[in-house]
Structures are given as structure tokens and as C-alpha cells.
């Protein structure tokens, strides 16, 4: 086993030290550890390349003279191998350690600690900072985060069954572009293959596991996509509702304007979906009354009629 490890280290050193591409013939002749028949060496080398790449080491393939199709050569460029974060300060080292600790036992804890191990080689001492708020933790121990991150990095397709609002599991295929955590929930955003539009999915609504499929087409990263963007006021519709004084706090926090009506307040709130807002309004019972728009008002009334028929 340690012979293979030695060979991988020697190959890395040789490919890093060279200033030009090394051909396979040169590698087999000079790098220690390549023995046996030509086929055996060939197989060894192919596996070694895959192994190094799986460690995140990028190997460049090229030729000496682009005008002639001669034998391909290999090298590892120092700028691809080395970590270049510029000058790192002791404070920054501490911040990165705190960031890694936020994972605790969650999915990325190993990845985070492995990054910190690499950073420790800079030899920059940490400058302990006291942030009382650093008690926040990222929780999620599922392997999904690794799968999703991998697919974001390679722009591959992510296939999964997603629970629709009608409680039906529908197969979705997306090219994931973002991963986020908000109020304790994990979300993945991506370009939906069918709709060709960006959609965001809550991970706990994914049924079963996510699978990755190789994306053979070129993918252009959507340029104008920003996480946590607020829907622009121009595209949003607003509702006018009355809320009893001292009540309806959940709705009040959304209000863009408030008018004092004495026993009641009249507030204006954005409508994300009629269904969601209807449920919010019904939750508050007699403490909320809808004025407009007409479709919201009608939906609330028809739901109330059904409630009455069902429970009479």
C-alpha cells in the first residue's frame, strides 16, 4: 500500500517541478514506482491520475507543440496546486476556524476541518477573537449537501422527486447553482431543465435521495442570479386588510404601510401567493378582515363557507 502512496507523491512532485509537459514515456522512465508491462504501467498511470484528481489536484494535459499532434504531456501547474488567498492575517485565520467550527458534527464538518488543516500550513498564528454570537451552528447531517455541492461545482444535473403542493412526488431535473440555509431550512436553487427557469427547492420536501447525472451540454451560468433577492415591488401585488389592534403580529411584520382606524389598523401587505396569504388570514380568525384584492377576498370567503359546511 505504501508503495502506491510513494508513487502518487513522487508523481505529484515530478509533475509540479517540471516547467514543461512530461510525456508518459518520460514519466515511466523517470518517476519511481512504474513497473511491469507497458499495459500495466498504462493502467497504473490512468488510476493514479484519477486518484490525484479525486484529491482535488488538477492535472493539465497538453502537448509540446500545438501545431503538431505529438504525444500528449502532463503537468501540475503550481498556481492550480497551491492555495493562493493572498496575505492572511491572524484575525482571518481565527474567523476561518470559527467558520469551520460552525459545522460541528454536521455534513461538512470533515471538509471544513480538512480546509483548516491546509490553512494551518501558512504558519500564521490565530488571533483569538471573542464573538459571543458564534454559538450558532449549521445542522444537517445528510449526505445530500455533498451531492449538491459536487453537482454545483461540475454543473451536472441533479435529479430528485419533489413533493408538490398537491402532495404528489414529481421528478425534477435541475442544474444546481446555489445552496442556502434560511431559518433552519436548507434550499437548493437551480435551472429547471424543463422550464429553463431558476427554481428553488426546500430539501426536506425532496423524497428519497438525489442523484447526479452527467451534463453533456455546455452550461452558461445565469448572470443575474442573486440569492435572497427580494421580489421587486413592481411585480408584487398588495392586499389591503384590517387587523385588530394588538393582534395579527405575523401579518403586521409584513406591512408596508399602516393606517390607524381606532379599534383596527388597516395594513397593506405583499401577496406572494394567494394560497399562502389565505391560510395566514384564516389562522387569525376574526381579528383580520380582507378588503382587496377581490380574488383574495373571494378565496377567503369560499374557504370559510367550506369550513362552515364541514364543521356544522
Amino acid at each position: 500500500m505504501s508503495r502506491k502512496i510513494e508513487r502518487l507523491i513522487n508523481l505529484t512532485i515530478a509533475l509540479l517541478a517540471t516547467t514543461r509537459y512530461l510525456t508518459k514515456t518520460e514519466i515511466f522512465r523517470t518517476v519511481e514506482g512504474y513497473e511491469g508491462s507497458p499495459e500495466t504501467k498504462e493502467r497504473m498511470f490512468e488510476r493514479d491520475k484519477d486518484d490525484l484528481r479525486s484529491l482535488g489536484i488538477s492535472i493539465d494535459v497538453g502537448s509540446f507543440d500545438p501545431l503538431f499532434a505529438d504525444e500528449a504531456g502532463y503537468r501540475i501547474k503550481a498556481e492550480n496546486y497551491q492555495l493562493d488567498l493572498g496575505e492572511i492575517t491572524p484575525t482571518e485565520i481565527s474567523l476561518l476556524s470559527l467558520a469551520a467550527d460552525a459545522w460541528q458534527d454536521a455534513a461538512f464538518a470533515d471538509a471544513a476541518q480538512s480546509a483548516i488543516l491546509k490553512l494551518s500550513s501558512f504558519g500564521v498564528p490565530a488571533d483569538p477573537i471573542d464573538i459571543p454570537g458564534a454559538s450558532q451552528k449549521l445542522s444537517n447531517s445528510s449526505a445530500d449537501l455533498e451531492t449538491i455541492t459536487g453537482a454545483i461545482g461540475t454543473s451536472d444535473l441533479l435529479v430528485f422527486d419533489y413533493l408538490s403542493t398537491d402532495l404528489v412526488a414529481e421528478e425534477r431535473t435541475i442544474i444546481p447553482i446555489a445552496l442556502s440555509n434560511k431559518s433552519g431550512f436548507w434550499y437548493v436553487s437551480g435551472v429547471d431543465n424543463q422550464l429553463q427557469e431558476i427554481r428553488t427547492f426546500r430539501l426536506d420536501r425532496v423524497q428519497g435521495s438525489l442523484t447526479v447525472r452527467k451534463n453533456k451540454d455546455a452550461f452558461e451560468y445565469p448572470a443575474d442570479f442573486e440569492l435572497n433577492q427580494v421580489d421587486s415591488a413592481a411585480t408584487l401585488r398588495f392586499a389591503i386588510i384590517d387587523v385588530r389592534k394588538g393582534k395579527g403580529h405575523a401579518l403586521r411584520t409584513l406591512a408596508t404601510s399602516v393606517k390607524d382606524l381606532g379599534e383596527w389598523d388597516q395594513i397593506r401587505i405583499p401577496i406572494y401567493t394567494i394560497e399562502y396569504l389565505t391560510a395566514q388570514i384564516l389562522w387569525h380568525g376574526e381579528d383580520v378582515f380582507v378588503h382587496e384584492p377581490a380574488d383574495l377576498r373571494e378565496t377567503v370567503i369560499s374557504q370559510l363557507q367550506e369550513l362552515l359546511i364541514n364543521h356544522e
Binding site: F108, A112, L119, T149, G153
Partner: peptide
């Protein structure tokens, strides 16, 4: 020189 970090390590940080 320290080895560069992987995409996943970057996302974790």
C-alpha cells in the same frame, strides 16, 4: 506551499 482547497471545503467555509 499549502495545497489548494476543494470546492466542497470552500463551500463549507
Amino acid at each position: 506551499k499549502p495545497r489548494t482547497i476543494t470546492f466542497q471545503e470552500c463551500v463549507a467555509l
